[in-house]
């Protein structure tokens, strides 16, 4: 890039003999001005040593950075071939399960939940759409992809949409169960009689409870945990969760009962013991 010579001061401060006070040759006023006019020419900024040094420095920086990226690629850091965390292993395991010919909707659900746990939200969304479009996979019992959508929304912090999805899962799974049960009375044994309501019903209840807890909606949270405990009364972890919500509601008596019930099933349940201490009921 060319530019006119800088103002006098640059020349004056350059240390060249005679600069600023006259011609370098003679040191007299008029001839100095003439001389400067003669010498005035377009000069490139690269003639400045510091500019050159800065330019080379920037170039070195870029080259080193590119070398680092190439090095990372060569070492396989950007493309790991083996799982590094349990979330990555789960993704790999369930992905291979879905590739099998006898892959079921449960395999797909596990795969999508593993993707969500590994923060691969976009891929999870794509898989949900792919499964929804696949009519061969039966979702009538568990509303599986709707449940996955609820989990995905929860992971993304879209709580209201997640609550709607979980509510719908609970309604659909219960309706499917009751319908099958009635049919069983007429036609004989079926899945509803053998296995009961689909697990996604209970998972949705606890997922809703977790969101309510996050939003400090204690009473609604307790209501959802009641749903779970009604059919799984020995779930010590859920009892402790409900005790916590009851504590927040001020129902210390109810909380103590839940903590003690949890300890009946798991005597060294640390959270239950700590909970009792917190509400002043510890020994």
């Amino acid at each position: 890039m060319d530019e006119p010579i800088e103002r006098d001061d640059a020349y004056r401060h350059s240390g060249v003999p005679g600069a600023g006070s006259g011609s370098p040759e003679t040191g007299t006023g008029d001839s100095a001005v003439r001389s400067r006019r003669v010498r005035r020419r377009k000069r490139s900024m690269w003639e400045d040593r510091r500019v050159r040094a800065m330019g080379i420095g920037a170039l070195v920086l870029v080259i080193l950075y590119l070398l680092t990226v190439i090095s990372a690629l060569y070492m396989g850091l950007l493309t790991p071939t083996a799982p590094r965390t349990v979330a990555e292993r789960d993704v790999m395991a369930w992905e291979s399960a879905t590739r099998a010919e006898d892959a079921t909707i449960e395999h797909w659900q596990s795969y999508i939940l593993a993707l969500i746990a590994d923060s691969q939200y976009q891929r999870a969304r794509t898989m949900i759409e792919q499964v929804d479009a696949n009519g061969a996979l039966d979702q009538s019992r568990g509303a599986n992809m709707l449940y996955c959508t609820g989990v995905l929304y929860t992971a993304q912090g879209r709580y209201d949409e997640a609550l709607d999805a979980f509510t719908e899962v609970m309604e659909l799974t219960r309706a499917a169960y009751e319908e099958e049960l009635q049919r069983g009375d007429a036609e004989g044994p079926n899945w509803a009689m053998a296995f009961g309501i689909h697990d996604n019903y209970y998972f949705s209840a606890t997922s809703k409870a977790a969101i309510y807890r996050e939003q400090s909606r204690w009473a609604e949270g307790i209501e959802m945990l009641d749903v779970y405990l009604e059919d799984n009364p020995q779930a010590a972890g859920i009892l402790v969760d409900r005790a916590y919500l009851k504590t927040q509601m001020g129902d210390l008596e109810g909380a103590e009962a839940d903590y003690r019930e949890a300890l009946r099933y798991v005597p060294d349940f640390e959270e239950a013991r700590e909970g009792l201490q917190e509400i002043g009921a510890g020994e």
């Binding site: 890039m1 530019e3 800088e6 640059a10 401060h13 350059s14 240390g15 060249v16 000069r43 490139s44 900024m45 690269w46 003639e47 400045d48 040593r49 510091r50 500019v51 800065m54 330019g55 420095g57 920037a58 920086l61 870029v62």
Partner: peptide
């Protein structure tokens, strides 16, 4: 020597900005 001592303020400004952006 004169060439060597040449100072381009504009060039330095441009390069400083370039390095910061980089």
């Amino acid at each position: 020597r004169e060439e060597q001592e040449y100072v381009s303020k504009r060039g330095r400004r441009i390069l400083t900005a370039l390095i910061v952006i980089l």
